[in-house]
Structures are given as structure tokens and as C-alpha cells.
Design a protein around this nucleic acid. Structure first.
Length: 117
DNA sequence: AAGTTGACTATTT
DNA sequence: AAAATAGCCAACT
């Protein structure tokens, strides 16, 4: 397994329940600035039984990124998982980023931040 | 070793 | 607002 994958997973694990982050955002946090695509590849390698909240990673437009390969069920499962966390989709299948985007530096309680950030 | 390929993004139509 | 364009960069061919 590639080293960078673990950094990606560590970043994804920071995303709180019910919030979402973009590929670029995760790349930045993983020290992979400018390599948003690599984040997608790393997520692809996550085993199905993993605890990593991969479904909380969406693209910058606020929608679930389409896979190129067959497994068409992945997008559907991602949406289902998000909805079960309370994340809502608009009539165009997009998530209102104003409401659900994770903002690591603008949390409700700044004093409760982990030492990491 | 040059060309292709994307779970991407920002800019321009 | 949506679609096309153009950068992007590591991994494969």
C-alpha cells in the first residue's frame, strides 16, 4: 500500500459525522496539495469493511463524483450513507455546501479543537 | 520514454 | 446555471 494513502485516510478520518469535505480539501490536509485526483485513487483502495468514512468525501461542486468503472452501486451507497447521517441533497442531487461543508478552522467551539489543528 | 487516464478543480463560455 | 476548456499530476501502458 502506498504511504500517501495512509495520510489520506488520516485526513478523511477527521471529517465529523454529518459533514462533508472535498477531494482538494483532503489533499491539502494530507500534504498532497494539488493532487486531488490522488485522493480519489486512495479512496478506491479502501476495503469495503473499513471504518474510514470515505462517503464524506465529495467533489468541489457539492456532488458525488461519478466512478468511471462499472460498480455503479458505489455512488448510490455513498448517497444513502450520507442521508443516514442527516446530510440533505437538493433537487439536483447536490449537497448545499453552505450547510454541510466541514470547516476545520471555523468550528462552533474553537477551544475544543484537537492539538492537531 | 512518450502517451493515456482519471472518486479533481478553476476558469471561461 | 450548466457545459465545455484547460490545467493538473501520479500511475499505468
Amino acid at each position: 500500500m502506498k504511504d500517501r494513502n495512509y495520510r489520506v485516510y488520516a485526513a478523511v478520518n477527521q471529517i465529523p459525522f454529518g459533514r462533508v469535505a472535498t477531494y482538494g480539501q483532503i489533499a491539502e490536509m494530507a500534504g498532497l496539495s494539488g493532487m486531488a485526483r490522488e485522493v480519489g485513487y486512495a479512496l478506491f483502495d479502501i476495503p469495503s469493511d473499513s471504518e474510514i468514512p470515505w462517503h464524506r468525501v465529495i467533489n468541489a461542486r457539492g456532488e458525488i463524483s461519478a466512478r468511471s468503472l462499472p460498480g455503479a452501486g458505489a455512488e448510490l451507497e455513498q448517497r444513502t450513507r450520507l442521508e443516514s447521517e442527516g446530510v440533505q441533497f437538493d433537487e439536483h442531487g447536490r449537497i448545499p455546501m453552505k450547510l454541510f461543508a466541514w470547516k476545520p478552522f471555523q468550528q462552533e467551539d474553537p477551544t475544543a479543537q484537537s492539538s492537531l489543528w
